[in-house]
């Protein structure tokens, strides 16, 4: 059973993948280096910046703190999986419109954290939004335009549902 290479099968952005990975490879390494999904970033490698955030089975996690082997059997969404054929995800649109993107390196992580929140909560409060992205360090924006963009995405979704 113990071997230095591990076979994993999982779903990433609605595609099934199967591959052999080194046992100690992080999920981040598997995504970036083996699947060329470079939208997910490495900012610190130790869970202190959130740039590598992905959504696994509906939950935001730091892919640098997860073994690739742990992806086996999971449903994974990365920033590349947010947009659909019908267009950008509302969060992506609002981030663009709301000037929530400056250098853009933390952006994928922020999008994934807020995406997980919006999947979990219909109408998150500002405090809940802040709590959801407190593990995502942004050095450019000071977060204000990020929070506003997420709030706009929430309120527009609610408006859409009430219409």
């Amino acid at each position: 059973m113990d071997k230095e290479s591990v076979r994993i099968e999982f779903t990433v952005n609605n595609k099934e993948v199967a591959l052999d990975i080194p046992a100690d490879a992080t999920a981040l390494h598997v995504l970036r280096e083996m699947l060329s999904l470079t939208g997910t970033k490495e900012g610190c490698g130790i869970g202190e910046c959130g740039a590598c955030t992905i959504v696994v089975d509906g939950k935001a996690v730091n892919s640098c703190l997860m073994l690739g082997a742990q992806l086996d059997g999971r449903m994974v969404t990365t920033v590349e999986g947010l947009a659909t054929e019908s267009g950008l995800h509302p969060l992506q649109e609002k981030f663009m419109e709301g000037h929530a993107v400056q250098c853009g390196f933390c952006t994928p992580g922020l999008l994934m954290s807020s995406h997980a929140l919006l999947e979990e909560k219909e109408n998150p409060t500002r405090a809940e939004i802040e709590k959801a992205i407190a593990g995502n360090i942004c050095r450019c924006t000071g977060y204000q335009q990020v929070i506003t963009s997420i709030e706009t995405a929430v309120s527009e979704r609610l408006d859409g549902e009430n219409r």
Partner: peptide, 10 residues
């Protein structure tokens, strides 16, 4: 902003 779309899509 320039490149903002490519930045939000990864």
């Amino acid at each position: 902003r320039s490149c903002s779309k490519a930045k939000v899509t990864g």
